[in-house]
Structure formats: C-alpha cells, structure tokens
Design a protein around this nucleic acid. Structure first.
Length: 479
RNA sequence: GUCCCUAUCGUCUAGCCUGGCCUAGGACACCGGCCUUUCACGCCGGCAACAGGGGUUCAAAUCCCCUUAGGGACGCCA
C-alpha cells in the first residue's frame, strides 16, 4: 500500500479563483481522508505573469480556508524545491534524455511561420498541428546551430496514434494524437512548458493521484506520452467538473465574486465557505449538508464527486454562511465581526455593550459585511420613510410614544422584563396593539421598520437616548 | 471546424455501477401558514425535474444506440 500523495499546483498569476480553490479543497480532503500528504507546488514557469506578491496571496488564501499543506514552499519537504523556476536543472536532465533518445527534437520554426501554418490548416478544415518540418534535423546539427545563436524550441516526438487515459471519474477515454501533433515542451528562451514540467514534477514528487479540473483532461494524453517516454510510473487521474456561473458559462468576474479573497472581504466565514465548496460537486453519503471540516474529511471520497459541472449558487452560500454566523457565541461572533464595523469607532464604546449590539443582529445577516447597516441604529436614529410616517401618524401613535417615554424615565437601564411590563402598560393605556404599538415604537426608536428584536433595542439603548429619539419623532409628528 | 466530457426540480444534488422498494427523496430560492401582541430567526406545508427518440427487458431515471443541448480543449497559458 503506497501512501497517498496529492498536490495543488496553482500558478501565481493572481488571486485564487473559486474553481481552483475547490480543486485544492478536494485534494486536501482526499489526502486527509487517506492519511496522505497534501503538497503545494507553485507553477511559475510563465515568467510574464507570475510574481512573488501573487505567491503570498495564494498562501494567505489557502491559510484562510485552513488548507494547510504538508509539503511545499514555506514548510519545505523532501521532494523540493517546490517552485518550478527553482527546478530548471532537474528539467534539463530529463530534456537531454529525451533529446538523446530522439523522443524530442529541436524546432527552429518561427512563431510567424507557425501562426501562418495554423491559420492555413484551420482554413482548410484540418487540425492545426505541427508539420514536422524540423523533426529530422540531426541533434548534433541542431546543437551547433543553437551554439551559433539560433533560437529553437523543443518538441515532443509523438509516435503513437492513440493514447488511453484512465480516469477515476470518467472511466477510460481514447484520445487520437493527431489532435495535437508534436507539441512544444520547451520555449525558444529555454523555459519548459507546463505539460512537460507537470509530468517531471508529479513523477519526482511521487504524486499518486492527480486531482484537477477537467479542463485538463485534454492535456492528459500529452502528459501520459511524456510519462512513458521518461519511464515514469503513471499516477491515477481524477478530473473534476468545472464550476459555472448562473448563465452556465465558465464562472468569471461578470457573475460576481470569483476569487477567494473577495469572499473573505465580504465576510464569509472560512468554515462556511469550506463547507459550501465541498458540496459543490460532491455529496455526503447521507446527504447531510452542514458539515464540519472533520466530518467532511471523514466522509470524503472521490467516487462521490459528480461528473457534471456545477453552477455556483450565491444564494445557497449565503444561507449556509448565515447558519454558521448564528452558530457562533457572542464572543466568537464579535471577534470575527468587529473588523467589519466601519460606521463607528469601536474604542469609543464599551466592549461588552458592542458585543451585545453585534449579537443582537446576528439573525439579520448572512455575510459579516452587512453588519454595519444593521447596527447603525444603535448609534444614530435614521429618517423614517413614507410607510413609517404613515404608522407614526396613526391616531394612537403619539399617545403610545409619550406614555412609553414617561414609563422609562425612571430607569437607568431596562431589563427585558421591564420592557415587557412597560409595553403592556402602554398597550393597555392607549389601546394600541400589534403594529400600532410595536412598529410605532420601533420606528420611533430606530427610524426603521426592520431590525433586531424590540426587547434588544430597548435594553441596549439607554432610556435617556430612547427618550431623546422619541422626542425628536414627537416634534416631527406635531409639525 | 475537429476532439473530449456531461445531461434528474430555476440552482446544488440523492437515486444510476448492482434495473422492480421511484406515484423520483433532500437542500437553496420562491410562495403560503404557524410562532412571536412588530421585522427577522425557527417550525410546518406548497410549487417544481428523469432533454428527445429508438431499442433490450415481464419491468428502465437506472443498461445500449442515435439525436439534441450545454461545457471544455484545440497556445512558445497553466
């Protein structure tokens, strides 16, 4: 029994996309479920788009979600280095081997030439594949030309006509190789391309299962060819379906937030995001939905990953995030929420009071960033809208407000019981009930028709403040 | 255009491999009701799907074929 080793191999070209992070998540869950090793590798061979800043962003995003890697940059490991730009010598060794064995060859064709050829093929309805022009240039001659300053790419010499891919999710698939022809494995500037390095790295890092998005399915035959040419043992492949936007096209910016840090900034809880993502394309054997990290790890299996693409459902994510928010106790909630409070300066207020305020609106929000608009009523009375004004103009309204103000005057603070007793008295005295009583009080005290429970508002706001607000409203009504 | 993948409620999905228990189950959203003498939360209920056509079979959402639709790939990106 070989120990499971899987990897997540992002290229540091920007923020991690939800599709990619879900791939990372599945790799992580599989590794942990199997007691295996989860490896992070940075695929930075595209020098133009890769950067150190982006690497750090990747680390941060993964850490936020708790996808800690057992081997990789920062933490190290026995199969490093874990950044491809630091592995060039390794690649060179295998490249030379291929070249010597005529399994690859130098290609001197210019980009313009190839583009033209591709154009022509396409127009003639043929597959845009390489003609094989440089295939027979002897290696010695090619090396000489390069020595003299010529630039050459290296192409893989495809000799088989068909490649079989065995995939855990999709089964056995046959690919005709005339789809791609002799593909490039090294650019003229000497940097090896993805399809080559991924094979060398996965093989050398002893990756047992390659779990990745199914947009890579078409690359797999090329990679298998390289595995074989180099004499490496094949890993198992599992190509997981894509994540789509609401219009069923590949999820992109126009569908809303798509990068991990955007979700983080909006106030999604990592455990909720983790849970939601796990259920996007995978299902629990008992169809449970709210699952902790450990439950997810315990229940995970590649077999239960669905084969079809999934639409990212923001509504369901919101619902789930709301559940996680409501599960937090008052201290936990405050510690995750305080960073999202922008409407006031926290240091000016008593912390326990702030905690109570935040806790009082927890049913109202599905993401933490919504907290501001819900707690602002505790700091400032807002202007009533037309509908509210109608309610304030009810016959009983001013009597309700006057009586309520009168009753709370003698209190330093109100308890829930005080509040209940007082509203009972006010109701009895004025004949107002239901909306005429509670909605009117709510509007007078906050300016709004929705908000936290009335008893929360009444106990959290000092009677002095409440009276001030009521007087403001009373003056407004009498005008 | 060529190749590859996929196809159950609007969405995420269970069921499919190992046909009968499926008058197709759950969740989100939506709509009703209840609970709070208010808004939510919560609870209860409702709406809503096997893409189409052929087979195979006593029996098909489940197995086979075709069509259609969607997605992906066809890079000196990963």
């Amino acid at each position: 029994m070989s120990i499971v080793r899987v990897r997540f191999a992002p290229s540091p070209t920007g923020h991690i996309h939800v599709g990619n992070v879900r791939t990372a998540l599945f790799n992580y869950l599989f590794a942990k479920n199997q007691n295996g090793t989860f490896i992070l590798r940075i695929e930075d061979t595209d020098l133009e788009r890769s950067s150190i800043e982006n690497e750090n962003i990747i680390y941060e995003d993964l850490m936020w979600l708790g996808l800690e890697w057992d081997e990789g940059p920062v933490v190290g490991g026995n199969y490093g280095p874990y950044k491809q730009t630091e592995r060039t010598l390794i690649y060179k060794k295998y490249l030379d081997k291929l070249l010597e064995e005529k399994k690859a060859y130098y290609c001197f064709c210019s980009k313009e030439e190839l583009d033209a050829q591709r154009e022509k093929n396409l127009q003639e309805g043929k597959n845009p594949i390489y003609s094989g022009k440089c295939k027979n240039i002897p290696l010695a001659e090619a090396r000489q030309r390069i020595e003299q300053g010529e630039k050459a790419a290296i192409r893989f010499n495809v000799t088989e006509s068909e490649v079989k891919v065995k995939d855990i999710l999709k089964g056995e698939i046959d690919f005709p190789t005339n789809m791609f022809g002799d593909f490039i494995i090294v650019r003229p500037d000497g940097t090896p391309v993805y399809n080559f390095v991924v094979v060398v790295d996965d093989a050398l890092m002893k990756i047992t299962h390659v779990i990745r998005g199914d947009d890579h399915l078409n690359n797999t035959p090329k990679q298998i060819l390289i595995y074989k040419a180099l004499g490496f043992e094949l890993p198992e492949f599992a190509h997981i379906p894509m994540i789509l936007g609401s219009d069923h096209s590949k999820l992109s910016k126009r569908h809303g937030d798509t990068s991990v840090n955007q979700f983080r900034q909006k106030g999604y809880l990592p455990e909720a995001f983790f849970n939601y993502l796990a259920l996007l394309g995978w299902s629990h054997p008992e169809e449970k939905e709210i699952l902790s990290r450990q439950e997810l790890i315990n229940a995970f299996s590649l077999e239960r990953i669905s084969k079809s693409a999934a639409v990212f459902d923001f509504d369901k994510l919101n619902w789930m995030n709301g559940i996680y928010i409501r599960e937090k106790n008052i201290d936990e909630l405050y510690s995750v929420a305080k960073g999202f409070i922008k409407c006031v300066e926290l240091s000016k207020y008593d912390e326990q009071w702030l905690k109570n305020v935040v806790f009082s609106v927890r049913e109202k929000i599905s993401v933490l960033s919504e907290i501001d608009e819900h707690i602002k009523i505790f700091f400032k009375q807002s202007e009533p809208d037309d509908e509210s004004i109608k309610l304030l103009n009810l016959e009983t309204s001013s009597a309700v407000l006057e009586r309520y103000a009168e009753e709370i005057k003698k209190f330093e603070t109100l308890t829930v019981d005080d509040y209940k007793a007082i509203t009972k008295i006010v109701g009895d005295a004025t004949g107002a009930k239901g909306k005429a009583l509670f909605m009117v009080l709510r509007i007078a005290l906050t300016g709004q028709r929705t908000g936290p429970d009335m008893d929360k508002i009444a106990t959290l706001l000092s009677p002095k403040t409440q009276i001030e607000r009521i007087n403001n409203v009373l003056r407004f009504i009498k005008k």
